[in-house]
């Protein structure tokens, strides 16, 4: 396997785990715009333990995950007191405070970043991503997953049915934080280097968009969203120059065309977001769609089509 594809697979696996970390709070109706903060916590914990104490990778990544999860659990109580716009702003502010603290920390390398001695190949993130995917699918099929969906759809009714919605939301937030931390730890070891600039506010925005565009109703959504938007730029890298040279040849200009500006992928992500929100705000993959695929000839599916 070439280094190019290995890099893409690592990024894909990390993005899938990260997307699941944001999916869990969003699936209970809490928009979490602070993903980069949790990822940075996991990445820096892993990097610090690896660089300072030379601990093995499973320990560093595991501790990073636990740290992010515990922080998520602790801040979930005050943060989930806030609602609506306030919740979005509070999670956003949390990520900025984490980034600012790391930036000012001498032991964590500040703006210089930190190199991570232990390196992991692409297989490990991919295997971990597989387990995380299975875990989230399992979680969504349990009673807890059911209460998460119910909380997402209607908090008041779910509360009246005797579900402790506060507990559900805090747990989803904390597990999500832990998964984002896990993604961060794997990131640190896969790229052997962490710097705080790679955990900026835009990263939080991207990952939230992956989740929302993929769809928040089923666990397939984040998988589809993260896979699509990680692989799309790679596809564009080869397709766009061909289109460009084809158009140029059409007008009669013969000149070599370089690879496209990296910004185009974000323009496309943004444009797709806007289009999706207008045409299909519930996301690419919905519960109805899955059911239709699964029971193609059953009566319930036909009712839903009608």
């Amino acid at each position: 396997m070439s280094g190019y594809w290995a890099g893409i697979l690592s990024i894909l696996a990390i993005n899938v785990i990260f997307a699941y970390g944001i999916f869990l709070p969003v699936a209970t109706g809490q928009l979490n715009l602070g993903g980069a903060g949790f990822q940075a916590l996991g990445a820096y914990t892993a990097a610090y333990l690896s660089a300072m104490f030379g601990l093995p990778v499973p320990v560093t990544v595991g501790v990073g995950m636990v740290v992010a999860g515990v922080v998520g659990f602790l801040i979930a109580f005050p943060i989930l007191r806030t609602r609506g716009v306030y919740l979005v702003l509070a999670t956003f502010a949390f990520a900025e405070v984490v980034a600012g603290t790391i930036l000012n920390s001498e032991t964590l390398g500040g703006a210089m970043g930190m190199s991570v001695p232990a390196f992991i190949d692409w297989e490990i993130p991919v295997i971990v991503a597989g387990f995380v995917t299975l875990f989230v699918f399992y979680l969504m099929s349990t009673r807890f997953g059911l209460t998460m969906r119910a909380t997402h759809d209607d908090e008041v009714v779910t509360d009246l049915m005797g579900v402790n919605i506060r507990m559900v939301q805090v747990c989803a937030f904390a597990i999500g934080g832990a998964l984002a931390g896990l993604a961060g730890g794997l990131y640190a070891h896969s790229f052997s280097f962490v710097e705080i600039q790679s955990f900026n506010a835009l990263v939080s925005i991207y990952v939230l968009l992956y989740v929302l565009l993929g769809g928040t109703q089923t666990a397939w959504g984040p998988l589809a969203g993260a896979a699509f938007f990680t692989l799309l730029p790679e596809l564009l890298r080869t397709v766009l120059p061909q289109v460009k040279s084809f158009l140029a040849a059409l007008v009669g200009i013969e000149e070599p065309v370089g690879p496209p500006d990296d910004s185009w992928r974000f323009v496309i992500l943004g444009a797709l977001t806007i289009a999706m929100m207008v045409l299909r705000p519930e996301g690419l993959i919905t519960r109805t769609m899955i059911e239709r695929l699964r029971f193609r000839r059953s009566s319930s599916a036909r009712e839903q089509v009608a």
């Binding site: 979005v88 929302l212 974000f266 943004g270 977001t273």
Partner: peptide, 11 residues
């Protein structure tokens, strides 16, 4: 609307 505005931000 919030998500759409994030899309516009990127575009």
């Amino acid at each position: 609307p919030l998500v759409s505005s994030l899309g516009f931000l990127l575009v």
